[in-house]
């Protein structure tokens, strides 16, 4: 199997894009070919001088000569720009990881790739994966573990609290869309339509770490299995999000109800540690790209050998 590095471009030089670029530069599996912004003086682009070979400042158009050298791209721009980016990426037959709230791509939470049929890696090389939301990424393992060992799931609730400082203008402006996307993922995962997502911003100093609580109501549960499955899946998330921890284990929280809480501490590549909400999205993006390329290379070998 090919051990070539995965050659990528990161589009968007804001906080998320910059953190992602730092993360990919430190990951031996990846080769960051280009970092793409809209202003040559942006702090993100300036920071990558001498570290990324192609620092481009005219948006996705400036990638034109580089497409033959790329496997895929990460999009950390905006929901509106993403629609346009996806069209171009398809034309060049590449994959794209969407970190915007556009909801165009297939929602993917990497920890569940081998578990949930709703979270499979695409068999087409040309693919678009949506990283959902921080609430979605942090809750999916618990939702899956609890509902897998429950009968007749009646309600699923996800509540997250994040540090105010970690919520930028995009999060604040799209709080309804955040709720919608998170709820859609929970429905996709469980088939349950009675889902609710809540987001709370906490301004305390020092900033709080992100916490997500999952609450499930169902006809009955196997708590022992849920505990085991949750611990296993949390450990699996931890392999790509080192600051992910189960702080309140699944417990009975009223009749027919199970609840559990995770905490997410960021890795601090570029963003501060309290930005666990942003960290988990970026970590998921890198893991998704890794898994997608791995599968397509396996398939390719199967065809060619």
């Amino acid at each position: 199997m090919s051990n070539d590095k995965i050659k990528v471009a990161v589009i968007g030089t804001g906080n998320i894009g910059t953190d992602l670029c730092e993360r990919l530069l430190k990951d031996p599996k990846f080769d960051v070919v280009a970092f793409v912004g809209r202003r040559s003086t942006s702090s993100g682009l300036t920071r990558m001088h001498g570290r990324v070979p192609n620092l481009l400042d005219s948006g996705i158009e400036s990638l034109e000569p580089l497409w033959p050298y790329l496997d895929g791209v990460f999009d950390a721009t905006s929901a509106t720009a993403h629609a346009e980016h996806w069209a171009i990426v398809q034309k060049h037959k590449k994959w794209i990881i969407d970190l915007t709230p556009s909801r165009i791509g297939k929602p993917l939470v990497p920890v569940l790739i081998d578990n949930s049929p709703s979270m499979k890696i695409s068999t087409d090389y040309v693919a678009n994966y949506s990283m959902v939301t921080c609430g979605g990424q942090s809750s999916a393992a618990l939702i899956y573990a609890i509902t897998k060992h429950a009968k007749s799931v009646e309600e699923v609730e996800i509540s997250s609290s994040i540090a105010s400082l970690s919520a930028g203008p995009a999060t604040r402006n799209n709080i309804d869309e955040y709720i919608d996307s998170t709820e859609n993922m929970a429905t996709l995962l469980t088939g349950c339509s009675a889902v609710k997502s809540i987001l709370v911003l906490n301004p305390a100093e020092p900033p709080v770490m992100m916490r997500t609580t999952v609450h499930v109501r169902a006809a009955n549960f196997d708590l022992v299995q849920i505990l085991q499955e949750s611990r296993d899946l949390v450990a699996k998330v931890k392999s790509y999000v080192p600051g992910y921890d189960l702080v309140v284990e699944p417990h009975v929280a009223g009749s027919g109800q199970i609840s559990a809480t995770v905490k997410v501490l960021g890795s601090g590549y570029y963003l501060p540690e309290y930005s666990g909400n942003l960290d988990i999205i970026n970590a998921a993006a890198v893991e998704t790209a890794t898994q997608h390329v791995h599968l397509s290379r396996l398939n390719h070998e199967r065809i060619t050998t």
Binding site: S159, S161, I198, V200, L201, N202, P203, A204, E205, V208, R211, T213, V247, V248, S259, T261
Partner: peptide, 17 residues
């Protein structure tokens, strides 16, 4: 001390623990 805000009810359990 931890400056909880409304909507962080689930954290009370963790703090009590």
């Amino acid at each position: 001390k931890r400056r909880l805000v409304a909507g962080q009810e689930s954290m009370i359990r963790e703090i009590a623990q």
